[in-house]
């Protein structure tokens, strides 16, 4: 959308700028893929018990059933895969939320979507006795959807559109309500409490390949919807009126976006618990490389999300031997980024 418009007026100059941008995007994409491979290798190799890299390679290609093979294939392998999937989902979900709200601080965690999914899942597990992720993932979707719609509507109430402040406050209010309800459910139930306190902070430890397999189909559908949503997002970035004038069906774009966000965030929360701040930081990193074009920004956000989540997990493992969950690590790193963003002059709308 932006490229042809920029290229047309002065052919030579514009094209070379566009060309440079495209070169930067392609190198960036390759670099990120490389980085993801490196981080995945680190995630397989490091932890409470370090496995040498050549042993990791042997475990992946030619397993013999030794100690290293078991660690890599059945403990760290699933953890890494779940981390990558959740990172992609949260990064893309964050980018979509920032695009739809045109708001630089939108994030599934801050806006209460995570808490919505978490509340529905706690309800399913503790009250309805639903067992296993394939059962409660549907509750996760429903919770994420309802919370997202409520927060967006609240943030825009009064007919003046949402601003960073209104969205963040609406998200904080809804999160607080859900937190109170979750506490009310969990505190009456010792067993629920025990599962909840580990799941609640967001963790990718102790997940097996079955979990990855169960969320993967939803993620794939969510990602496809997200990619289909990107041209519409580019138009929406100019404002709803301009988007309509350009021939976009704004309502269809919005519904598509909400569906994609619901699927991605709901699946990620079902698998890992509510992990905040990935969706906040990642789109800003991606935007620095790709510029505002969502067709590039969304794939970048997915890759960076996966890298960030895995890197935080490896770091957490190295710092405190599995006692620091990745969700906490990300919040402790991510919240200062949020504070920097809100201190920025003007806190511009996207």
């Amino acid at each position: 959308m932006a490229t042809p418009l920029a290229a047309r007026p002065s052919a030579g100059h514009g094209r070379s700028r566009g060309g440079r941008l495209r070169a930067r995007r392609i190198t960036g994409l390759a670099g990120l893929l490389g980085l993801l491979v490196v981080v995945s290798a680190l995630s397989l190799a490091y932890g409470a018990h370090a496995v040498p890299l050549d042993a990791v390679w042997r475990a992946l290609t030619d397993p013999a059933g030794g100690e290293h093979d078991i660690i890599v294939r059945s403990l760290r392998g699933p953890r890494t895969v779940v981390g990558i999937l959740a990172g992609i989902a949260l990064g893309v979900g964050g980018a979509l939320m920032q695009g739809h709200t045109r708001n630089p601080i939108a994030d599934p965690g801050l806006l209460g979507v995570n808490q919505g999914a978490a509340f529905a899942i706690v309800l399913a597990v503790v009250v309805f006795g639903v067992q296993g992720i394939h059962g409660f993932i549907w509750f996760g979707f429903a919770g994420a959807l309802v919370a997202a719609v409520v927060v967006f509507l609240l943030g825009a109430v009064g007919g003046r559109g949402s601003t960073p402040v209104t969205l963040a406050l609406a998200g904080a209010a809804v999160s607080a309500l859900l937190y109170g309800l979750i506490s009310a459910i969990v505190l009456g139930n010792q067993q629920g409490m025990e599962t909840y306190r580990f799941w609640h902070v967001g963790s990718i430890a102790g997940r097996d390949f079955a979990v990855a397999g169960q969320i993967a189909p939803f993620l794939v559908v969510g990602l496809l919807l997200a990619l289909a949503n990107t041209p519409g997002l580019n138009a929406l970035a100019l404002g709803e009126d301009v988007a309509t004038a350009l021939g976009r069906d704004v309502r269809r774009t919005r519904i598509l976006g909400i569906l994609a966000i619901t699927l991605l965030v709901g699946a990620a929360v079902s698998a890992c618990g509510p992990i905040a701040f990935v969706g906040l930081i990642v789109p800003h990193l991606a935007r620095a490389v790709t510029g505002p074009d969502y067709r590039w920004l969304v794939p970048f956000a997915g890759l960076i999300g996966a890298i960030l989540l895995l890197a935080a997990d490896v770091l957490a493992r190295l710092v405190s031997a599995d006692r620091l969950e990745v969700g906490i690590m990300l919040a402790i790193v991510g919240a200062p980024v949020f504070i920097v963003l809100v201190r920025r002059k003007g806190l511009a709308r996207l």
């Binding site: 969700g327 919040a331 949020f338 504070i339 201190r343």
Partner: peptide, 12 residues
């Protein structure tokens, strides 16, 4: 807004 960020850190 800064308070919301601080809450997130301390809560975690």
């Amino acid at each position: 807004l800064v308070g919301i960020g601080l809450s997130a850190v301390s809560y975690n």
